[in-house]
């Protein structure tokens, strides 16, 4: 009986955490619109505007018919992003885990984007095709510096497990203090991962009519909006977990339930800061062309990430700093 009770409690907690993450994502989208509006000297919508938008979209009916892949794709994307959320520690609480999960996470992060691309391709709209092509090229561009950054973290902390990484950061200092160069490269890569403004090439509404989203409307678009809300939390949370210690300030083994509450609040504050940096850059920049973005990513962030990798290698292998 107690086993069943535990499973039910765990399932409930999982659902609660995923629901909270989606809510946080929607709230962040609203805050981003408000902040962007203030930077443009406008009033801007209320910060709960995106909840209304999602509600409206889900209450609408969609009568667009292409094929079953098109119908399936929004669910695929949303499920993929929920899976990624379950693998990422949010405020120290983590739903699923495994050995070597930093590498596993890299693969999981691609699933939602693939689902998205699948649906866009199935719609057979030329704008969607152009958008998907741009999205995949952009992915190829930012993965280069991002993989180097991950490598430098793995070398410095001598682990490929996210749990161990968080534990080591909790017991000493955050990774951003010891590997600031890598953190800089990761933040530049994050801007492309979140498709914020110098790199919003795949969904350029003024050029290719919102790209992969072009054929989606009504409740399909509502589901994709939930997907993008989830992916905001995934991406900001990824940076926080890698470089800011996942927001873990109190050890859950010592402080129990209080630690979870405090860590969740700290995690929220940290992902908010990371998101605001992205939004401030987004509000004032124009858009790169795709080949400019590619050249940029394989030049500057890659160079910075290589420097960070050298620093991590020298510190951990030659100087023998161990954490």
């Amino acid at each position: 009986m107690t086993d069943w009770a535990n499973i039910l409690i765990n399932a409930g907690l999982t659902a609660l955490y995923l629901f909270l993450a989606i809510c946080v994502g929607l709230l962040f989208m609203g805050i981003a619109r408000k902040v962007t509006a203030r930077i443009h000297n406008r009033v801007g919508p209320p910060i709960y505007q995106n909840f209304l938008d999602v509600g409206k979209l889900l209450a609408k009916k969609s009568n667009i018919k292409h094929n079953w892949i098109f119908d399936f794709a929004p669910l695929f994307a949303l499920a993929g992003v929920l899976l990624a959320l379950a693998y990422l520690p949010m405020g120290g609480y983590r739903l699923l885990s495994g050995d070597g999960d930093l590498i596993l996470l890299l693969y999981i992060l691609v699933i939602p984007a693939l689902g998205f691309a699948l649906g866009a391709g199935a719609s057979a709209n030329p704008n969607a095709g152009v958008g998907v092509m741009r999205a995949l090229t952009l992915m190829l561009s930012y993965e280069m510096p991002f993989l180097l950054v991950l490598l430098s973290l793995m070398i410095y902390y001598n682990t490929a497990s996210l749990t161990t990484l968080l534990e080591k950061q909790m017991h000493s200092v955050w990774a951003i203090d010891v590997l600031p160069i890598s953190a800089l490269a990761a933040d530049i890569a994050l801007q492309g991962m979140m498709m914020e403004k110098p790199f919003d090439i795949p969904i350029a509404p003024h050029e290719i009519a919102s790209g992969p989203l072009v054929e989606f409307g009504g409740n399909y678009l509502g589901m994709l909006m939930l997907y993008s809300a989830g992916s905001i939390v995934v991406e900001t949370s990824l940076f926080v977990d890698l470089f800011l210690g996942g927001g873990i300030v109190l050890n859950p083994a010592v402080y129990g339930i209080l630690a979870y509450v405090v860590n969740y609040i700290v995690w929220f504050a940290l992902i908010f800061v990371v998101w605001m940096i992205a939004i401030f850059i987004n509000a004032v920049f124009p858009r790169f062309r795709i080949e400019q973005a590619f050249k940029f990513y394989w030049k500057w962030p890659t160079l910075i990430a290589a420097l960070g990798l050298a620093q991590a290698y020298i510190m951990s292998v030659i100087l023998g700093v161990s954490v």
């Binding site: 406008r42 801007g44 509404p205 009519a209 072009v214």
Partner: peptide
């Protein structure tokens, strides 16, 4: 600023 009322321009009629 019509975004005050949640009115934003969309790129395609589907949306």
């Amino acid at each position: 600023d019509m975004e005050r009322f949640g009115i934003i321009p969309m790129a395609t009629p589907r949306q």
